[in-house]
Design a protein around this nucleic acid. Sequence first.
DNA 1: GTTCTAGAAC
DNA 2: GTTCTAGAAC
Length: 247
Amino acid sequence: MSNLTILRTYALKDPATLPASILFSNTDSTLTIYDAFPKSLFHFLVLPRASAPLETNELASLITLLRGDRTRAKQVISSLNEAAKSLRKEIEAEMVNRYGFKWNIWTGFHAVPSMQHLHLHVLSADLCSEKMKHKKHYNSFHPKLGFFLHMDEVLSWLDAEDSYFTTMAKLDPAPYEALLKENLACFHCGSAMKNIPALKAHLQMEWDTLATRGKAQLARKRKLEEKHAAAGTDEGRGPPKKQKSDQ
DNA sequence: GTTCTAGAAC
DNA sequence: GTTCTAGAAC
């Protein structure tokens, strides 16, 4: 992507004018689009739409938003969070449709964004993608490294006392950028990976293991449901167990 | 983002 | 010799 302001142009447009290949869904205050370079099997961006009193300058990034009015920042982040929640439900349904099981979904911001206009990443926890080519791509989504700021963490800053909020909201790029150069380590098991091709092969193996386990689990669950249905009871046919949030 | 390339790693 | 990374140019 050569155009660093493309997200802003989307945010200013009438969502009805955006092609279906870009726009997934929208609300009055948010847009959900497909990431043009998905780094996982599922990867979306949720953006705040620009509308008064929100200036595009204030929505340029997490830093600019947090530098402005805290209540307004909280409203923006909360609206992104709500859109992300319903998006995750749709992703989970599609996980079952396409792959026969569901796995975790991460929701968060890059500490140092590469494009203008605030965007929340919502992506499946696999990092298996053709587009994942460089160390910085991988490290920017590693869920424990610190560059990827999980939604729950950012929300906690907004509810914290002033001194903590101010400290976290600074988001000085230098220490975060240094994280992108950290050695490659598998986010599942922590083992060190000597290079990107080795990492990608390992991640694929980790995901295949998850898939095998997940499909077997779902098959057992369905069998149990059938058994209960045959016995004429409603047991096991209730709503699915509430999933732990993925932050 | 991609392409190109020097030099490191193997 | 081949594979891989990382920085520069675009």
